[in-house]
């Protein structure tokens, strides 16, 4: 046993390095002056602390079609609205699937599974036409509808698992005491599954925070863009300011990484609840 310990540490160091080095490189580059980024031989660490990338990102410059703060704001709004919509609908649906035994329940289960397999690149063309018809192109509302609906099936499946873990005798007790189904659901079962609701909320928030294909296709006006589209747009330009780009990337990533760390315990149990039983 003693002999194996160093091997475990070696493995731990290697896998950690593999996992974090691109992230570390991003943070380092965001703080380098351009002379460091384009130096030969390459300097791995900033020779002097450079905040130009961050200040450039925080101040909009309309002439370059860059408005990082606006994109950040757009992304927050879209992600929050998506989260609210999808949680409300998924919680109702998950509770219904967990507690009721009506006809068609199995069919809905299969429906949920099938939606997981729908490729975005197939959906995007008819959705584009439909959104155009209803004037939802280039609007955050249209994006929120699309994101919520894509997130809802998976969220419902996760929440059903959480509701299943709460004994239905609690429901029965509440209803014997005179509470209706709605009261039972809203004031007794929902609070009991709060951790599950948090995980699911985080999941749908992340999905819309990171989404690229729909946002890229539906939003044409750069003032409407989300962070993914905005940041990706830098790359197409013929002069790439890597310090700007990496500063923007750090600011896009940090909220998510912090959320992951804070909630990793719940996230892990939530993701694996369905698979490991």
């Amino acid at each position: 046993m003693k002999l194996r310990q160093p091997l475990i540490y070696l493995g731990a160091v290697l896998i950690s390095l593999f996992a974090i080095s691109p992230f570390v490189w991003m943070v380092l580059t965001s703080m380098k002056p351009q002379s460091d980024i384009y130096s030969s031989p390459l300097s791995y660490f900033p020779t002097s602390l450079h905040t130009g990338g961050y200040t450039a990102m925080l101040n909009p410059h309309a002439d370059d079609n860059v408005n990082f703060m606006k994109w950040f704001y757009n992304t927050v709004i879209v992600s929050l609205l998506t989260t609210v919509f999808s949680i409300v609908i998924s919680a109702l649906g998950g509770y219904s699937m967990s507690r009721f035994r009506y006809r068609g329940r199995m069919a809905i289960g299969y429906l949920i599974l099938i939606t997981q397999m729908l490729p975005g690149s197939l959906l995007i063309i008819p959705l584009y036409i439909i959104m155009k018809q209803y004037n939802l192109l280039n609007s955050h509302f249209g994006l929120v509808i699309a994101y919520s609906t894509v997130a809802i099936p998976f969220c419902t499946w996760m929440l059903k698992g959480y509701f299943d873990s709460v004994s239905s005798s609690i429901d029965e007790a509440a209803m014997v005491d005179g509470a209706g189904r709605w009261r039972t659901f809203a004031s007794i079962i929902m609070p009991l599954t709060l951790p599950g609701l948090v995980v699911t909320a985080i999941f749908s928030f992340l999905t819309s925070w990171n989404e690229f294909l729909f946002a890229q296709t539906f939003l044409s006006d750069y003032g409407k863009w989300t962070l993914s589209v905005g940041i990706a747009s830098f790359q197409g330009q013929y002069v790439v300011n890597w310090d700007y780009l990496m500063a923007g990337s750090v600011m896009t990533t940090l909220p998510i990484v912090i959320a992951f760390w804070a909630l990793q315990k719940y996230l892990v149990s939530g993701m694996t609840a369905g698979a490991v039983k």
């Binding site: 974090i20 993914s228 896009t252 992951f260 990793q264």
Partner: peptide
């Protein structure tokens, strides 16, 4: 180890 999972795709 979960960092790569958290970093947005475009980034």
């Amino acid at each position: 180890v979960i960092i790569p999972w958290a970093v947005p795709e475009v980034v």
